[in-house]
Amino acid sequence: MQLTQEWDKTFAKSDKVDHKKITFTNRYGITLAGDLYQPKNASAKLAAIVVCGPFGAVKEQASGLYAQTMAERGFVTLAFDASYTGESSGEPRNVASPDINTEDVSAAVDALGLQPSVDRERIGVIGICGWGGMALNAVALDKRVKAVVASTMYDMTRVMSKGYNDSVTLEQRTRGLEQLSAQRWVDAENGAPAYQPPYNELRGGEAQFMVDYHDYYSTTRGHHPRAVNSGNSWTITTPLSFMNMPILTYIAEISPRPVLFIHGESAHSRYFSETAYAAAAQPKELMIIPEASHTDLYDRVDVIPFDKLTTFFTQYLATAARAA
C-alpha cells in the first residue's frame, strides 16, 4: 500500500480540524486506508462517527466532506476506502461484495474505538448512497454502534437483482445471470477478471440521474482518479454476489437504536429510503430535502442538513453514553 500524503481531496482542507491517514484491517485480513479527522485542541474523549460511501467513490470525495464537516462540529470521524478500492488493499481491484463491504463498516468501528481520543460507547455511522444500505446492514449486526444515518440511500442488492423500481422480470434476471455465469469461464480462462465499460461517460440520451452522476464524478466538482465512478469500472462479475443477498432483511433489528434517513425530494432513488424507512422499527425518521436530487446530497453543503446530523448524533450518542 502506498498512501498519498498530499491533500488530494475534492474539497478544501479545514483549519478547524486535525487530519491524518490511518490503516486498519478487517476480519478478512484486508487492510483498509482511512482519513481520521479530529477537532483541533480536543481534550476529553469524544463521540465518533464512521462515514462511508457512495458506492464506487473514495474517501477523498463525499464521505471525506461529511467526515471533515462533522469533525468541525465536535466529533472524531473516519472516512475510508472500501476493500479492493481506492488506497485500500485487496486483489483484484474494483470488486465489491455486500458481505465484505458490510464487514468494512464494522472494521472502521474497530479502528475508531481504538483511538485514544474516542469514547467507544459513543460511536455512530453515516452511510452515503450505496453505502447507506451497507451501513444499515452493518448496524443491524454490530450492536456497538449507537446511531446510524443513511443519506441519499441505495440498496445495492435490490437494484442489482431487481433493477430500478424493481422492474426486472424473471426472464431478464435469468438472462443476466446466464451472461454473468458465462463471463466466469472467460475470466477463468484468462486468469483475471474482465472489467465493465468506464463509468459515467455520457454518449447522449441518458436519464437525468446519469447526467447528474457525470456532473459529480467526471468534472472538477467531484472527479478523483482513484474512484471507480470517475472513469474507472467494476469487474463485470461484481453483481453476482449481490443477486441473492437482500441486505436490509433485518433492518428492524437496528431498534432500539435510532436511524435517520435523508433523501432528496427529486431523487430518482428516493423509493429506497421510503421502503427502508417503512421496514425499520422505531425510533426512526425520514427527512426529505425539498427539490434536492440524489447527488445534491454528495457535496452541496447548502443542501446537506449538517445541522440535523449534528443534532441527531449529539442527542443519541449522548444518550448512549448515559446508558453505558
Rank of each mutant, 00 (worst) to 15 (best):
A182I: 04
S117L: 05
I247L: 06
S117D: 03
I254K: 00
T310Y: 08
Q68S: 10
F242Y: 15
I123H: 10
A82H: 09
T238E: 00
K13Y: 00
V301K: 12
L3P: 02
D8R: 13
S151T: 07
N165H: 11
A47L: 05
A207H: 13
K162W: 06
N165M: 14
G231D: 08
K284I: 07
N41L: 01
K16D: 10
K59F: 05
S151Y: 11
G64F: 02
Q38G: 01
L46F: 05
Y250L: 10
E265G: 13
G204I: 06
Y250N: 12
D110C: 04
M245G: 00
A135L: 04
P116L: 05
G132C: 05
H224Y: 08
P198H: 05
L136Y: 04
P305N: 09
Y28H: 14
A192Q: 15
K13L: 13
Y164H: 14
D299Q: 07
V125G: 03
A44E: 15
C129I: 09
D110H: 06
F313V: 12
Y66P: 02
G222C: 09
I247C: 07
V118N: 03
T23N: 09
Q172R: 14
A42P: 08
A44F: 10
F80V: 01
A182V: 05
S266W: 10
D212R: 04
I49W: 04
A140I: 07
Q115R: 06
L114W: 05
R158N: 13
R122E: 06
R27L: 14
Q208A: 14
A138C: 10
F272P: 11
R27N: 07
K21L: 01
R122C: 09
S97N: 14
I126D: 07
I100K: 06
V148L: 06
G74Q: 11
V303L: 11
T295L: 13
L286H: 09
I289A: 04
K16M: 09
A135Q: 01
H294D: 09
F272E: 01
D155Y: 09
K45C: 01
A147F: 03
S89A: 15
L170W: 15
S293P: 00
T4M: 06
I289T: 03
M210W: 12
V50L: 04
Q208W: 15
P258V: 05
I100C: 04
T310C: 09
E206Q: 13
P116S: 11
N244F: 07
Y66R: 05
G191K: 13
P197F: 14
E253C: 09
D187W: 00
Y154T: 13
K162N: 14
A182N: 11
D15L: 11
I123P: 10
S106D: 04
G29E: 02
D110F: 05
G264V: 06
D104H: 07
R184K: 13
E60D: 10
G56Y: 00
Y164E: 00
I126K: 01
V145C: 04
N165F: 08
R73K: 14
S266I: 00
R173A: 15
I49D: 04
M70S: 08
G124E: 03
M287E: 13
G64H: 02
T157I: 07
D99R: 01
V139A: 02
L260H: 04
